[in-house]
């Protein structure tokens, strides 16, 4: 399924970029990330305990950052395997300045396979939505100018995050 959208983050571009390509940051944003270790240049091994409610699976994953152009662009490739199946995704993130803060343009592709694909059909979309929200909530929380860390995301934040992720999902389901 295609992933596409634009996300506004209320923080300067350099800061957003730095957080996104930093393993510590990533491990905080990727939902369910329990462990993230550097295994090479911009390559990480991660253990993701992903899922919702009582439904959870552990995925051994590699996360790779490619095409890094500081403060502008990078590509993230995630490849996770576990007993419930696999999750693979790659996406280009493009950062640009906005009047206030940074705009993150995202475009990529996600594949889900195995049990989760064959039985979780009715919830995959909602799960992806939820995880995207979690990713950007955490990013926004960390990216906020310090001193402001405890406050909730801006009121329209969830709506925006949701509409972005649902855009591509709708696209995906329409194709079918």
């Amino acid at each position: 399924m295609k992933v596409e959208g634009v996300q506004h983050i209320d923080a300067p571009r350099a800061k957003v970029y730095q957080l996104l390509v930093d393993p510590v940051g990533l491990s905080r944003f990727i939902p369910g990330c329990e462990q993230l270790e550097r295994t090479g240049d911009n390559t990480f091994a991660a253990t993701l305990k992903a899922g919702v409610g009582s439904i959870k699976g552990t995925f051994k994953s590699t996360v790779k950052l490619e095409d890094l152009r500081p403060n502008e662009h990078f590509r993230m490739v995630v490849d996770g395997k576990g007993a419930p199946g696999f999750v693979k995704g790659s996406g280009d993130l493009d950062l640009s300045d906005e009047d206030v803060g940074t705009s993150v343009k995202y475009s990529g592709d996600i594949q889900v396979g195995g049990t989760i694909a064959s039985v979780g059909q009715r919830m995959i979309q909602a799960t992806a939505k939820m995880m995207a929200v979690q990713f950007f909530t955490s990013l926004e929380r960390d990216a906020k100018p310090s001193g402001d860390t405890s406050s909730a995301p801006p009121p329209n934040f969830f709506r925006r995050a949701l509409s972005w992720i649902s855009g591509w999902l709708r696209e995906f389901f329409r194709k079918r």
Binding site: M1, Q111, V112, G113, A117, S118, Q121, K175
Partner: peptide, 8 residues
Amino acid sequence: EQGQLVSG
């Protein structure tokens, strides 16, 4: 599109 059987 990836050949996953989603009506499983």
